[in-house]
Write a protein that binds this DNA or RNA. Structure first.
Lengths: 381, 381
DNA sequence: TTGTATGCGTTATCAA
DNA sequence: TTGATAACGCATACAA
């Protein structure tokens, strides 16, 4: 049909060639004008910059990354399961989160937006959010962008992400370790809160769960004279096992004999979590204190107990671990062990930024301190 | 010196060539094995995949992006000012946020981590966090990664980001519009909460500030019989001006005569914000109701009033705008207009995902509905 | 089904 | 100071 050659084809992105043509110089000069401005005559530079501006030129990150062999980004990968929000299961009333919003009209009434999601402040923010925040902060400080990715557990998904970043931090996942196993040869990888393995190639950032539990147990035993403690949470999860072990050793230190198994091995993802706790609560057979593996588990325990008429802390003492925002807003306020989550993110980013580009280094495991945070759920006034 | 050719050079990333060599096939076959697995004989595919796994191969995102002409990422750009957290000004006690963490030892005690930052739950999360959350969610749904970037206001910083993504969403900034002006020719750009301009190339996602103010003023006038309303907040900021205008028109609708200027034109970044409010409070000359341009401004107003002994809502009614989490935790709870922030993020991502790759389209301005959220700060029980 | 060859847009090396 | 040109690692059209 008509000759389209006269119409600037804006489906193609503007390149150095376009800028060079417009400014009447070579592509090398265009590149120089941006990367080494003072090695180019002022007038030439201006001409190039002007042409670039007029054309809306943005240098291709892909091309730059290809030649420089670095992307300038640090990745933060979550496996899908972590992304789904707890509320998603309960059928949302308004617009479903997994449906497209209808953008055909220019005005979207409130009712079409499904904003109920955050109606419960206790559900927000979670563990990952705070770590992510620290990671962003530190990456930015060091001149890196942050690439947020997620995906299934397949090696391909992870490798895809790995190919886009100079370093990768990964939230814990039971399956993470295998699918990542080999990419540590390629880029530095940090695992958060992942139990230490013999000698794989991962860097690790985790908290001192054992010391944290020690502090918590010491408070309960010494300040509240509680000797009857039981653990809630399945040791299958990331570092819950460490916390359980920490509790056991702390109890022994006080001359107590810990159970060899958790009282209830639930994980929050289970179909009917904390069933055992509920049973025992109904039977009036709970121990004096429930040491929960995480804040979320502890807050859910609150609900279970409330539903069967048990009071915290009068009938049962409940503690958590993490120190998420929600734990400070609950009634009673949760006694818990605060993880320095922002610092975890920052440490990870710093580790990656340092290691990026260099040949694989001796993987490091950094362990961060925690702090006991006393609320009322332990019986303190 | 020695012949380094024999030593696998692990500073170089593994490429298709390496995999091809190891698997005894051509590079095309390697590519096929990943991208069109069923057009490759099973045995060959296995050989390739195995070689890839053993080598820790991760396909270069840069190279893929170069050939496919798309990065697979959507960008979320913040100008620096927005990233700095309010607390940063007040000299942090622990480790400074802008210093490196000391990673020389493998154990980092709590005291070295400066975790005090989040000690005030009211400071978290902010406006941007919630939008970001929605953006992530939607981008992921559509198979895009999210690139978080930040930078100064220079065209170069923004162009750099623009070159790395298929579409870009930008938080409001007074300077944003000019530095971005030309890149809309290259990739789709969405501006959040940015006042409508004649006909630039930006898509816009904003809320119906006018209607929101209408609802708020109606509540104060009709349900509380308040006629004496004044606006707090500088119209220099993004959509604060719209909110002020919305308040004015709402007042007129009720037969009231609004002031032509805000009572106090502070912005939170000012050196001594809300000085005028404080003066008037001390003089006992405040109007019955202060309509603040944002929740953060309103919560800060709480503090000012408390410091001079004025009570909310008995002496002065205070309202906000945004509906951030903090507004629900304050005492008294803030009466405010909730913005559907997660939806804003989702809409932006959806807009970008749809527009990515296509030639520039007619820019759209989408306006989302708000919801009045009544607390006690207006005098409701 | 697999291999060869080309181009994606940049940076950098070397000449001019 | 500027221009021509060769990688960078991948996907794909085309051959075999």
């Amino acid at each position: 049909m008509g000759d389209a050659a006269m119409v600037p084809d804006r489906a193609r992105r503007v390149t150095v060639y376009d800028v060079a043509a417009r400014a009447g110089v070579s592509i090398a000069t265009v590149s120089f004008a941006f990367r080494r401005p003072d090695e180019v005559r002022a007038a030439t530079r201006e001409a190039v910059l002007t042409a670039a501006r007029e054309l809306g030129y943005a240098p291709s990150g892909s091309a730059r990354g290809l030649v420089s062999r670095r992307t300038g980004s640090l990745g933060l990968h979550s496996f899908d399961m972590l992304i789904e929000r707890p509320q998603d299961e309960e059928a949302p009333e308004g617009a479903a989160v997994d449906a497209d919003l209808d953008l055909s009209a220019d005005t979207l009434p409130w009712a079409a937006l499904g904003d109920d999601v955050h109606s419960d402040p206790l559900a927000y923010p979670l563990y990952v959010d705070e770590i992510q925040r620290g990671f962003e902060l530190e990456a930015r400080r060091r001149g890196h962008n942050v690439l947020l990715s997620s995906g299934g557990r397949s090696t391909a998904d992870v490798a895809d992400t790995a190919g886009r970043v100079d370093g990768l931090a990964v939230f814990p996942s039971i399956v993470a370790r295998e699918s990542l196993a080999h990419i540590t040869q390629t880029i530095p990888v940090v695992l958060f809160s992942s139990p230490i393995a013999s000698a794989d190639g991962y860097h690790r950032v985790l908290v001192d769960n054992v010391q944290g539990m020690q502090d918590l147990v010491a408070h309960l035993v010494q300040d509240h004279q509680i000797t009857d403690l039981a653990f809630v949470g399945g040791p299958a999860a990331a570092d819950y096992a460490e916390r359980f072990a920490g509790m056991q050793s702390a109890m022994r230190r006080f001359g107590l004999t810990p159970a060899s198994e958790p009282l209830d091995s639930s994980l929050l993802g289970d179909t009917r979590p904390l069933a055992r706790v509920r049973e025992l609560a109904i039977a009036g057979a709970l121990p004096r204190a429930l040491i929960c593996a995480s804040d979320q588990l502890a807050l859910f325990t609150f609900e279970i107990l409330r539903s069967v008429g048990s009071r915290v802390p009068e009938d049962v003492v409940v503690t958590g671990f993490d120190g998420v925002l929600a734990s400070r807003l609950s009634v009673p306020r949760l006694t818990t062990v605060r993880q320095p989550m922002e610092a975890m993110g920052r440490v990870a980013a710093q580790l990656l930024a340092n290691a990026a580009g260099a040949p694989p280094q001796m993987p490091r495991t950094l362990r961060l301190g925690t702090q006991l945070r006393i609320g009322q759920s332990c019986g303190c006034p």
